[in-house]
Design a protein around this nucleic acid. Structure first.
Length: 490
RNA sequence: GUCCCCAUCGUCUAGCCUGGCCUAGGACACCACCCUUUCAAGGUGGCGACACGGGUUCGAAUCCCGUUGGGGACGCCA
């Protein structure tokens, strides 16, 4: 009604994406797991491309041979696959494109927009220390720009970009608005290492240009790289893509996300029993919103996402909300799927023994009671194995002498029940309570403690079903013995 | 240290651009009650924020300045 009536007609968009073939890219460096920050960046890129009917490209920035690993590449690919963030192109690997970078480096060298630098590590360190000591921002002073002396023998030079000395770089960031940097704040960055490998700032520029990327959507930590990249693009006489810098994701404590915050890798969430759609929903709401809507299906995200609705402030990752979302999706997940997921968790917990009901039946019984699949498995332990000691408080409250009669009565009825199914089991418990003229709780609670060792479990007839006939009867016997024993001692 | 950015309930956010509809709305969490054979789920209600200080204006969460707080960037990492 009120919301439906509001006009959806926007004023002219910043960029006319309608006519343009939108191309976004996610360009992680394979030096670790796909963490939530990277996953959200990937999600935004994917969403933007899908929303505009464009193309989502995946590019692996593996030019740092020291730190790049195949294991990381696999981890990133696994994470993206799990989240369903499928790429339309790629993955491309920068190390497969070395010749391309080389070509552009030669070009910049020829046009005098790049130069060789023989400064040693020690020399650079000394320079930066001196600058810091003077209260200046450490930056390369361009001493090799016009070096006339012969280069030292045996030293392989790096290539530096000759950044403009004055003026400013101004660009319109799709989430931050107009951003301006004074060229004096920048310096002559290294674009090719001594071994010829391009550095990040050069590789991205060439690839984004070469791959016709129209919208560069990346983390906030790259804003300062943008003017440098824009200068290189200008030196190449090329047209720059649009930029959108999205805020970072902070840990629950408001601090930068790090290993201390637990689940660093996206796959850890799967192992912990989260559903990918829950993580996706959580991620999309960090820094982005659409009115008061909290739940977004993949299709809704695609339909409603736009980069101009993204925030500028960093957001903290909240596990409580993730848990709520996860439970929401668990509650509406397909039984078969949930059963398979539950079976994985059961396996993981070493609860291999077969149970009286199938994993999917178990999931249907427990779906309202768990925020994660791991929790669901844990809460279902009693269906797989005999519990140890009775929960102290539960036993004290429900396995008192007065429970003896109800337990014996229900033991007898259950022993005679035909068909160990919810209906007859429910009837048996009800009839038992009626015969004894007591509240249902007087029978159900002692029975529950007898079956599970605790005072909390699914509806009593379902609990009986989960435990199975044989185990149920023996556990009731155990509880009866416990109550008798306790009565004798007092 | 230098440069840049950010600032609404504990958390995610709506509102801010185009001041008045805001005694600031929603969600998570928390508390209470209802429902109930337990635990959940569900329902109802409650607690709870415009960081601070100055302006501008008839009127500011919304515009401007400053302060404070937080974050980011300063590599032959990405």
């Amino acid at each position: 009604m009120a919301t439906g009536a509001s006009s959806d007609i926007r004023s002219a968009p910043l960029i006319s994406c309608g006519a343009m073939n939108v191309r976004t890219r996610f360009a992680p460096s394979p030096t670790g797991l796909l963490h939530v920050g990277g996953a959200r960046t990937a999600l935004f890129c994917w969403l933007f491309a899908r929303h505009h009917g464009g193309t989502f490209v995946l590019r692996i920035e593996d030019t740092d041979r020291e730190r790049s690993t195949q294991a990381s590449i696999d981890a990133i690919l696994d994470g993206l696959r799990w989240l369903g963030l499928d790429a339309d192109e790629g993955p491309w690997f920068q190390t497969d494109r070395l010749a391309i970078y080389q070509e552009y480096i030669e070009r910049l060298l020829c046009t005098g927009r790049a130069y060789r630098c023989w400064c040693t590590r020690e020399e650079l360190d000394a320079m930066r220390d001196a600058q810091r000591a003077r209260g200046e921002k450490p930056r390369y002073d361009g001493r090799c720009r016009h070096r006339t002396a012969a280069p030292p023998a045996g030293v392989e030079p790096v290539i530096r970009f000759a950044n403009p000395l004055d003026g400013a770089v101004v660009f319109n960031d799709l989430v931050r608005g107009t951003v301006s940097f004074d060229n004096r704040e920048l310096d002559d960055l290294v674009i090719a290492r001594a071994d010829g490998m391009p550095t990040y700032n050069f590789g991205v520029v060439i690839d984004d240009l070469d791959m016709d990327i129209t919208h560069v959507i990346r983390g906030d930590d790259h804003v300062m790289n943008t003017p440098r990249q824009l200068n290189i693009i200008a030196a190449l006489d090329a047209a720059p893509p649009h930029y959108a810098h999205v805020p970072m994701i902070l840990g629950a404590d408001g601090q930068r996300l790090s290993k201390r915050h637990g689940a660093v890798g996206v796959m850890q969430f799967r192992d912990d029993g989260y559903l990918p759609e829950a993580l996706l929903n959580q991620l999309v709401r960090l820094g982005w919103s659409h009115g008061d809507q909290e739940i977004f299906s993949r299709e809704e995200m695609v339909a409603k996402f736009d980069i101009e609705d993204v925030n500028r402030a960093p957001a903290a990752f909240d596990y409580d909300k993730l848990g709520w979302l996860n439970q929401h999706y668990i509650r509406q997940a397909d039984s078969e799927r949930l059963g398979a997921l539950l079976a994985e968790q059961i396996e993981r917990m070493g609860l291999g023994a077969p149970s009286a009901v199938s994993p999917s039946a178990l999931a249907d019984i427990q779906r309202d009671r768990a925020r994660t699949m791991a929790e669901m498995a844990d809460k279902s332990r009693f269906a797989f194995e005999e519990y140890g000691e009775f929960d102290e408080r539960a036993a004290k409250k429900h396995l008192r002498p007065v429970a003896l009669q109800p337990l014996e009565a229900i033991r007898e009825r259950l022993g005679a029940v035909a068909g160990w199914e919810p209906e007859p089991l429910h009837a048996a418990v009800n009839e038992c309570a009626a015969a004894l003229s007591v509240n249902l709780g007087k029978v159900a609670q002692p029975l529950r403690v007898a079956l599970t060792g605790t005072a909390a479990s699914p509806a009593i007839e379902l609990t009986l079903q989960m435990v199975g006939r044989e185990a149920s009867l023996s556990r009731i016997d155990r509880a009866i013995a416990y109550v008798r024993n306790r009565a004798d001692q007092s």
